[in-house]
Simulated scan of single mutants.
Amino acid sequence: MAQPAWSDPVPLALDTAPVPAYGTGSLADLLPTLAAGMDVPGTTAAIPELTPADRNCVFLIDGLGWEQIKAHPEEAPYLHSLLGSSRGGTGRPLTAGFPATTATSLASVGTGLPPGAHGLPGYTVRDPQTGALMNQLRWKPWTDPHVWQPYPTVFQLADAAGVHTAQVSAPDFQHTPLTKIALSGGTFRGRLTGEDRMDLAAEQLASGDRSLVYTYYSEVDGKGHRFGIDSDAWRGQLMYVDRLAQRLAEQLPPRSALYITADHGMIDIPFDEESRIDFDEDWELSAGVALLGGEGRARHVYAVPGAESDVLTVWREVLGEQFWVASRDEAIAAGWFGPVIDERVYGRIGDVVAASHDDVVVIASRREPHESAMVGMHGSMTAAEQLVPLLEVRS
């Protein structure tokens, strides 16, 4: 459908934004459901159709959305087969949560909480205590991780309940702040290759009568950012991770359930002025803005004190055809960040929150040169970004 002309803006109604299914079918609901099936205190089965298993493994593939698996049956024959009910598995999509970005999603997975509670509501957000932008993936500038995110992880709850709990990932991730506050509990096992991770995850599953194991692979996302999801490099990674998933599934010990999921999907953004609106070169968008946070498809905009209303008006006038543009309180009331917002999290959310509806991003070529040069991007609430797989295999 053709978009209205820029000279005649028709702002997208906020109630058309497909809000994540917090509490019934989001990433934050997965681990609590699995843990509840193993009688872990403090957890609730929010996805009731998942049958409890004694041994549960979550394989998270960074950047591989539901829509991307559907679109590539030849490159991912095993994963594609799990979209239905063949091979003894079942598949359905979950919603990642907003924004659909790695730091936010991994915190949702590990804590079982939506972003408004765990407090990582974006790629970069303002720290209300210092006024500086905090990169929650790289954890810069440094802040105490357990003050920033004080809740226990589901892994910690499971470990305390006597469940054999392990994370199998790249060795470099073991001591990162994001791992400490989102994915810690039990034992961390570092392995360099995907094959070694799959083999070790299967071994860890078999190590307890009740087990909860998490494993992770990142390079589908990496190739998508650098080359795009329409590239041979990305397709090669998809083919590789398809073989990894099958390798793990074929080693499941008895009484096990494997759940293959992701933290977000991705779309490719053309390199033209209409698709990449440069905040650093746009005097209208930058007027009255003290800090620009988030990322190209999910922006947190922090206004100069007193300019909040004007910034909201301008962002709606300039971007309202192609972005959902909300004030902080409107985004919260609409449930973008979950049903409850912790007091400590409120000021981390932008005075204005802008989520892209079309194949358009707000880049910042000078202040964010690396991110602005990416081909594949994510963050918003479109199906391509928001829907992630929940593919189940049982033994």
Rank of each mutant, 00 (worst) to 15 (best):
D232S: 12
A354D: 07
L178P: 13
H118T: 05
S85G: 11
R197P: 07
G320K: 10
E203R: 04
H118F: 07
G296L: 04
A257E: 13
D39R: 13
P150S: 03
L192P: 06
L291G: 08
K180G: 08
G25S: 03
L31A: 10
S365Q: 00
E274D: 15
L113M: 08
N135T: 09
W315H: 03
A233Q: 15
A36S: 15
A158T: 05
S169R: 13
T130A: 06
L205V: 01
R328Y: 10
A202P: 01
A96N: 08
S86I: 11
T382Q: 13
A117L: 15
G335E: 05
L64A: 04
D278G: 03
Q167W: 11
A298L: 07
A206S: 03
A331Y: 02
A333E: 14
L285V: 03
A107W: 09
D268S: 13
A132N: 14
V125W: 02
H300M: 07
D221C: 03
H378S: 05
I363Q: 01
P389N: 10
E343W: 12
P270G: 03
P141T: 14
P171L: 11
L60G: 06
P389W: 08
E219G: 02
V10D: 08
H300E: 04
L30K: 00
P115K: 12
T102Q: 07
E317W: 11
G222L: 11
Q136C: 14
G97T: 10
P11S: 09
T101N: 09
R299G: 01
S356F: 09
G306T: 04
P254H: 03
R243F: 00
R297S: 06
I181Y: 11
R126F: 02
G376D: 05
V325H: 06
D221N: 01
D196Y: 05
P99Q: 11
S372R: 01
D329K: 08
S356I: 11
A161K: 06
A182Y: 09
Y217A: 11
K70A: 15
V154W: 07
A384L: 10
A384Y: 04
Q322H: 15
R247N: 08
A96S: 15
A103K: 07
G350Q: 04
Y259K: 02
V19Q: 00
L137Y: 10
K140W: 14
M198C: 12
L312Q: 04
M239E: 13
T187F: 03
L244M: 09
T179G: 02
Q3K: 13
D15T: 12
P18S: 07
G293C: 02
H225Y: 00
G335M: 05
T111E: 00
Y302R: 03
T176W: 12
M374H: 12
T51V: 15
S286V: 01
A303W: 00
T104V: 12
D358T: 14
S169K: 09
E49T: 14
Q68F: 01
L50N: 08
A35M: 12
